[in-house]
């Protein structure tokens, strides 16, 4: 318990420091990429619990993001009204006022996504492999189509004018919480049981693991953080529309996992960073080569080459830990 608190304090102060540093010294474009990296890390790490640890191939992550984004946006925008006398916007519910009001709004968004995870998970997690992938893909599409057709959430235009709340501080804090909780989860009995389900479902069942229940719990965990990430992304982009959360977004997160190594937390983080930075870094290449569009070709080539030469992903199922570092460093003990 003490350790958890300590880790939280460390994370928050780290995020605070980095936030200040970025604001002072780093150009805005780079800060934005770092923010996007943070969100990508939350997405990849949370999906890793479902796809990597538990082995349930889900393509519904963007759907949960959308739910988190729209619900949190409801609390930070729709609940605001224009005070006609003073000309200022005020928030109807004091809890959601100001930048600190962002956190409850985000958490409610995450919980809404988690609730959706429960509702979707109970029937679909009976399915396996391809069938589960198709069912979760269908879920994502249903969310998008509903959002596109409800005039109250702006239909296809989406919601504009989200307040600028998603600072580096919040993004990094939540990324830290997501990573640390995943580390704890991975090392817990629960995490080992998830891996057992991935490895051999029948054997897990006869060892007394409640397979159906644990799968749903993993799904809820992943959906919660996807919802948080959606809320953060919404308040970073400041406009959300259904097309932001299309199925390509889900695929993107899956690609991050596969690139880093499915089942590896370190891999998920590295995959998230690489796939967020790479397209941006390739912009320069594009300009110098004067070949517009070559960016996505290179991006695809990198992925293809990696899959040919290292199909298990950069990290495989390994983790970057102190033990591994010691072994890799010259003169290190075996």
């Amino acid at each position: 318990m003490h350790r958890t608190l300590l880790l939280l304090v460390v994370g928050v102060s780290l995020a605070f420091g980095v936030d200040w540093f970025l604001g002072e010294f780093i150009e805005e474009y780079v800060v934005r990429i770092i923010n996007l990296c943070g969100i990508a890390i939350i997405l990849a790490v949370s999906l890793n619990v479902i796809n990597g640890l538990c082995g349930q191939f889900s393509l519904g992550h963007a759907g949960f993001m959308a739910i988190g984004a729209y619900v949190s946006a409801y609390f930070t925008t729709t609940l605001r009204v224009l005070n006609t006398e003073t000309g200022e916007t005020v928030v109807r519910a004091p809890l959601f006022d100001g930048a600190w009001g962002f956190v409850p709004a985000l958490l409610i968004g995450g919980m809404a996504a988690a609730a959706a995870g429960l509702v979707v998970g109970v029937p679909t997690l009976r399915l396996k492999g391809d069938y589960l992938a198709i069912a979760t893909l269908g879920f994502g599409e249903i969310v998008i189509i509903m959002l596109t057709n409800f005039e109250s959430v702006g239909a296809a235009r989406g919601l504009p004018g989200l307040p600028n709340y998603a600072s580096s501080f919040w993004i990094l804090t939540f990324a830290w919480i997501c990573v640390v909780s995943s580390v704890f989860l991975q090392r817990s009995t629960f995490g080992r049981a998830l891996v057992a389900i991935r490895e051999n479902e029948l054997a897990a069942e006869v060892m007394g693991i409640r397979v159906a229940r644990l799968k749903v719990m993993a799904f809820i965990y992943g959906a919660f953080f996807a919802g948080l990430a959606g809320g953060l992304l919404g308040h970073l982009l400041r406009t959300i529309s259904p097309s932001t959360f299309g199925f390509m977004k889900s695929i993107e997160v899956v690609v991050m996992l596969v690139l880093g190594g499915l089942g590896s937390l370190t891999g998920a983080i590295v995959g998230a960073i690489v796939l967020t930075v790479l397209p941006e870094a390739l912009r320069d290449v594009e300009q110098q080569a004067k070949l517009p569009g070559i960016r996505m070709v290179v991006y695809a080539l990198v992925l293809i080459l990696l899959m040919i030469f290292r199909p298990q992903g950069i990290f495989g199922q390994r983790e970057l830990s102190l033990k591994l570092l010691r072994r890799l460093l010259p003169g290190g003990r075996k």
Partner: peptide
Amino acid sequence: VESGLVMAPEGRGIFPNLTVEENLRIGAYA
């Protein structure tokens, strides 16, 4: 399983990517 009725499944249903010790510890899951 909690009440002591346990099956060892056919085809050596072990967990291939877990170590021997991890496999055994999962046996004591319940």
